[in-house]
Nucleic acid binder design. Structure first.
Lengths: 199, 199
DNA sequence: AAAGAATCTCGAATGCAGTCGAGTTTACCT
DNA sequence: AGGTAAACTCGACTGCATTCGAGATTCTTT
C-alpha cells in the first residue's frame, strides 16, 4: 500500500490551492503573502514550494483547470447547428467572460499565457486545446460551404484568436464599458474576417 | 535663477536611465538590482525612486521614448504610394522588430501596455499614437478605393492591431522561427482581412 | 544676508518571494 | 522486525524592491 503518502499529498495540495484561491479572491493577489497561504493551509511556507514552483502557478493552475471545465460545458451546451460565426462568438464570449470575471486573475493568466518568459510545453498544450476545437469548427464550416475551401485552419484559428486577444487588451485598457459592447465589436470584427473589407 | 537644481535633476535622471538601460541590456532585467543601478549612476538607492516610481518604469519609459523615435523615422521613410496593405505590413513589422529586438524588454513592455493593472491615460495616449497613424492610412485607402467606404476606422485599426498582437503572442510562444515567417503570416492574415474568407 | 520653506539625498529598516539544509515521516527490501 | 533510501516538512536564511525619516542642499522672502 503506497497510498498513505499519496493521499496525504493530494490533501495537502488541495488545502494549499483552496487557501490560496480564497485569500487571493478576498485580499487580492499581491496583498496575499506566501506566509498567509501557508498559515491558512496549515503547512510551512517552504512546503508550498514542494507543490507549486511559484506563487503565480498556484492559481494559474487553478484557472487553467477551471477553464478546461468551462470548455467542456461549452461543448455539451452548444450544437454546431448555428452558423460557424455565431458558434465562434459564443465560444470566445464564454472565455472572455470567464477571464474577465476577476480582473486580476485574468490579467495574470493572460500575461503568462500570451507572453511567457520562454515558450513552454504547458502553454503550447494549453493553446493546442483551442486549436483542436477551432479546427473542428472550421472543418464543419468548410463542409457546409460557409467558408472557402483550402484555407489553412491554423492561420484561421490564429486570426480569430488574435481578435479575441485584441478585445481583451481593449477591455483591460478601458475601451469597453460592458460585455454587450465587447460582443458587438466581436461580431463586427468576425464579419470583417468573413466578408473582407474591400467589397 | 532656479536653474541649478533643475539642471542637476535632468542630469541625475539621465544618469539613472543610462545606467539602468546599460545594465539591463548587459545583465538582463531580473539580474540587475536597484543597488547596481544606483551604484552605476552614482546615487543612493532611494534616490532612484524620486525619479521613477518603480524598477519597471525606468525602461518602460525608455522603450516608449525609443518607440516614438522609430515611429517618426517610419513616417519619414515610407511614402503612402504603395498599397495600404503593404504600408501596414511595413508599419507593423518595424514595430515587431523593435519590440522583439530584446525579448525581455519587449515582453515587459507588452505586458504592461496591453494588460495594465488599471487603465491609465499614459497607455491610452500611447495607443492613440497608433490609431492616429492608422486613421490616416485608412482615409487614404478609402479615397483610392482600396477599401469599402463607411467602415469604422477605429474598428479597422483594432483589427489590424489585434493581428499584430496575436503574432507577437505567437512569437513569444515559439510558433515562429524567424521574422520572415512572421511577415509571411502577417501578409496572409492581412489579406484575409481584405478579401474575407468566404469567397 | 539670514532664516525658514521646499526639495533632494541616501543609509537603514521593512516586507516578501523563494532557497537551504537539517530533521521527520513513509516506503521498500531482506 | 530492522535498516536504509526516498520523499516530505518547515523554520531560518538570503536577496531584492520599496519605504522611512533624518539630514543636506537649494530656493524664496524680507
Amino acid at each position: 500500500m503506497s497510498g498513505v503518502r499519496a493521499q496525504k499529498k493530494q490533501q495537502t495540495r488541495r488545502a494549499i490551492e483552496e487557501a490560496a484561491v480564497e485569500l487571493f479572491s478576498c485580499k487580492g493577489f499581491d496583498a496575499t503573502s506566501m506566509e498567509d497561504i501557508a498559515h491558512a493551509a496549515g503547512v510551512g511556507k517552504a512546503t508550498i514550494y514542494g507543490y507549486f514552483p511559484a506563487k503565480d502557478d498556484i492559481f494559474l493552475q487553478y484557472c487553467d483547470d477551471r477553464l478546461v471545465i468551462a470548455f467542456n460545458q461549452f461543448k455539451e451546451q452548444h450544437s454546431k447547428e448555428i452558423s460557424f460565426v455565431e458558434y465562434l462568438i459564443a465560444f470566445f464570449m464564454i472565455k472572455f467572460v470567464f477571464i474577465t470575471e476577476n480582473r486580476e486573475f485574468g490579467r495574470l493568466l493572460l500575461r503568462e499565457m500570451l507572453f511567457p518568459k520562454e515558450p513552454t510545453d504547458k502553454a503550447r498544450e494549453h493553446n493546442q486545446r483551442y486549436f483542436d476545437i477551432l479546427e473542428g469548427v472550421f472543418c464543419v464550416a468548410e463542409e457546409r460551404g460557409e467558408i472557402a475551401p483550402n484555407q489553412d485552419h491554423f492561420t484561421l484559428s490564429g486570426h480569430f484568436f488574435s481578435l479575441y486577444v485584441g478585445l481583451l487588451a481593449g477591455w483591460y485598457s478601458g475601451y469597453f464599458d460592458s460585455l454587450e459592447e465587447v460582443e458587438k465589436s466581436m461580431r463586427t470584427l468576425f464579419h470583417q474576417v468573413c466578408h473582407g473589407i474591400i467589397s
